[in-house]
Amino acid sequence: MKKVLLALLVIVAISCNDKTEEKQIATPSEATENDTIPNFGIVIHGGAGTILKENMTDSLEKAYKAKLEEAIRTGHEILANGGTALEAVQRTINVMEDSPLFNAGKGAVFTNAGTNELDASIMDGETLNAGAVAGVTTVKNPINLAYEVMVNSEHVMLGGKGAEEFAKQQGMEIVDPQYFFTENRYKSLQRIRDKEKTELDHDGKTAFVDPFIKDSKFGTVGCAALDKNGNLAAGTSTGGMTNKRWGRIGDAPIIGAGTYANNATCAVSSTGWGEFFIRGMVAHDISALMEYKGLSLQEAAREVIQEKIPALGGDGGIVAIDHEGNVAMEFNTAGMYRAKMNKDGELEIGIYGE
């Protein structure tokens, strides 16, 4: 009888131990549940240049911060709900394109001929597919047309009238060129044209001559995003250079210069002196330094923006996010309109060099 009782006690003890082990195995799983939520993030810029606190009114600073927050929250919500990085990039940039605060879409600067010529590009980090448009004058949101070029044509870049015809065929929103007219931008052109001098949209040398340029600054816009599926995307949109001539095109629509995305490395959007960013192939160079030299995103961005571009004689900045959600907002100018949000919804907005 004693042997039977001992056997029963052993069985009960083993059973209890098994249950205890099951609980111990389950507990760590519960503790790390939050860690298994897919990572995602988004970062934007609204232009880089001689952006100084002393030249900014309180009301204008609030307006820029409010629009940057509206833009980035638009994209962040898409990502949080499981949307794609490509969708987040487009909708975020749309907010800035529709605002006269930035040199893109509605707020585009004027050419020497008194027109507004818009450029944009977008890239998919998963497929390395890309689309771009240059010199369009009637498309309300050029970044959306760049996307259509990427997904609905066999081409990467379309320009001018051909791009506008393609936009009509794709059912894009077409506007009268007058839509892009803003009084302050036009007055800026008049002052510059009187001098017969080409001025970069972010050129600090004339920032104190023209009140509008001094106060509202610059504004090529861009966005880079990582979605929950681990896919990266980047996009850039701009009105280019004030008083530009001869169909000048900057870096914004150039894949590898103004925009680049690769799931293996990062997604980048550039803003700055376009001629130098084209020569330096800034966006791709940051990705290449990560891929070939094993640099981190921040290390690569710093090397290109703080060393390579200044050595050429150019200035500007970038925003970027890598495949792990790390973000870089690097610039060598006095300031850059910028914002970032991570998967936890933590928001950071900046304007000046800090």
Score class of each variant (00 low, 15 high):
A334I: 07
T50P: 12
T32K: 14
T92H: 01
M329H: 04
T127K: 02
A267D: 03
A146W: 01
A7G: 08
N129C: 10
G235L: 08
A163Q: 05
A163N: 07
A63Q: 12
N103L: 12
M281A: 15
Y260F: 12
T74M: 02
V268L: 06
T236K: 03
K3W: 09
A311N: 15
I349C: 05
I249C: 10
Q170C: 06
E164P: 11
R191M: 13
M1N: 13
E299D: 14
T84Y: 01
G46I: 01
L347P: 02
A104Q: 00
M56H: 09
K161G: 08
V95E: 06
S121A: 10
D322R: 08
V136T: 11
A233L: 07
N116E: 13
K3R: 13
C266N: 07
E22I: 12
E148D: 14
V10F: 15
L312I: 06
D322M: 00
A300G: 02
T265W: 01
G49C: 02
A334P: 03
G247M: 02
A257Y: 05
K19Y: 15
I37F: 03
M172D: 08
G239R: 01
H155G: 12
N332M: 00
F40M: 04
G313Y: 00
I122T: 11
N332Q: 03
G159R: 12
G46N: 03
F166K: 04
L86A: 01
E324P: 04
G47A: 10
T27Q: 14
K217C: 11
G107I: 09
A267V: 07
G46Y: 03
D58N: 15
V221W: 01
L52V: 15
P28H: 10
L200V: 14
N144G: 10
P100Q: 01
G47I: 12
N184P: 09
N152Y: 07
K140L: 06
K67Y: 07
E307L: 14
A320K: 06
I351C: 10
T74N: 05
S99D: 05
C266T: 05
Q306M: 11
N34D: 13
E22S: 03
T242L: 11
G240H: 10
S188C: 13
G159Y: 12
T115W: 03
S153V: 03
Y186C: 00
R193D: 07
G335C: 04
V327K: 05
A224L: 08
L295T: 02
D285Q: 09
V175L: 04
L6G: 13
L101W: 00
A257P: 10
I321M: 09
N55W: 10
E33F: 11
A261M: 06
A31V: 15
A113G: 13
T127C: 00
A104D: 01
V304S: 14
P310S: 09
D119K: 11
I305F: 05
F180S: 02
G272N: 06
G83Q: 04
R73L: 14
G135K: 06
